[in-house]
Amino acid sequence: MGYKVQIGLSNKHLHLKEEDIEILFGKGHKLTPTKDLVQPGQFACEEKVDIVGPKATLKGIRVLGPARPETQIELAATDARAIGIKAPVRESGKLEGTPGCKLIGPCGEVELDHGVMIALRHLHLNPQQAEEAGLKDKDVVSIKIEGERGLVFNNVLVRAGVKHEKEIHLDTDEGNAAGCGPNTMAEVIK
């Protein structure tokens, strides 16, 4: 039996830079944490915004904190298609060449010329967990999910470091395709 890791399903969300937080929510506004996430220092926020594309609007989309150096919108392919945006699959933070959108908050609007992406599926590990698994940062692995709709996902990026904790991130399209629910585990295949 291989190295097992729990799957965390990532619903559509966004990360905001400080300047955009102030435009959307008001001067001096600080994000309001509502729930800590598995990844150290990361949290879901009370704040929500609308994401406007050429075809439609996604209403009330959750902001995740803390603030980032650059605003990043993470959608599943189904969400991107629904609002008319052709979003590429990217590693977090790799936003060059991505399309933009409009964000609407309670205090203002931000027109982005880039930042919309479909997150590359990835495996978070802290240094000790990476050593246990025989993996290192930037490795690419596959994961196997058992069950009625079991699947093997290839091209899973390993993100290992002190700011990470053991968890596989799939978006809702991927999780639904594999029949993932709470506490679904996957086996890492090197």
Rank of each mutant, 00 (worst) to 15 (best):
residue 1 M to K: 07
residue 3 Y to M: 14
residue 5 V to Y: 02
residue 8 G to Q: 10
residue 9 L to Y: 00
residue 11 N to I: 02
residue 12 K to M: 12
residue 12 K to P: 06
residue 13 H to K: 06
residue 13 H to W: 09
residue 15 H to T: 02
residue 17 K to S: 05
residue 17 K to R: 14
residue 18 E to S: 13
residue 24 L to F: 01
residue 24 L to N: 01
residue 24 L to K: 02
residue 26 G to C: 05
residue 28 G to K: 07
residue 30 K to Q: 13
residue 31 L to D: 01
residue 32 T to R: 10
residue 33 P to F: 08
residue 39 Q to F: 10
residue 40 P to H: 09
residue 41 G to P: 04
residue 45 C to N: 02
residue 48 K to C: 10
residue 48 K to R: 15
residue 49 V to I: 11
residue 51 I to P: 05
residue 54 P to M: 06
residue 55 K to G: 07
residue 56 A to K: 14
residue 58 L to E: 07
residue 59 K to E: 13
residue 59 K to L: 10
residue 61 I to H: 05
residue 63 V to L: 03
residue 64 L to A: 02
residue 67 A to M: 02
residue 68 R to K: 11
residue 70 E to R: 12
residue 70 E to C: 00
residue 71 T to D: 04
residue 73 I to N: 04
residue 77 A to D: 06
residue 80 A to G: 02
residue 84 G to S: 11
residue 84 G to W: 08
residue 85 I to L: 04
residue 86 K to Q: 14
residue 93 G to F: 03
residue 93 G to P: 03
residue 94 K to M: 12
residue 96 E to V: 11
residue 97 G to H: 07
residue 97 G to F: 09
residue 106 P to A: 12
residue 106 P to C: 01
residue 106 P to Q: 12
residue 107 C to W: 00
residue 110 V to S: 04
residue 111 E to F: 11
residue 111 E to G: 00
residue 112 L to D: 07
residue 123 L to V: 13
residue 123 L to D: 08
residue 123 L to E: 11
residue 129 Q to F: 04
residue 131 E to C: 10
residue 132 E to P: 05
residue 133 A to H: 09
residue 136 K to I: 14
residue 139 D to N: 15
residue 140 V to E: 15
residue 140 V to G: 09
residue 140 V to S: 14
residue 142 S to C: 11
residue 143 I to M: 07
residue 144 K to E: 11
residue 146 E to L: 12
residue 148 E to H: 13
residue 148 E to I: 13
residue 153 F to N: 07
residue 165 E to H: 14
residue 165 E to K: 15
residue 170 L to M: 09
residue 171 D to F: 13
residue 171 D to C: 11
residue 171 D to P: 07
residue 173 D to C: 08
residue 174 E to N: 11
residue 177 A to R: 09
residue 181 G to Q: 10
residue 187 E to K: 10
residue 188 V to L: 04
residue 189 I to S: 01
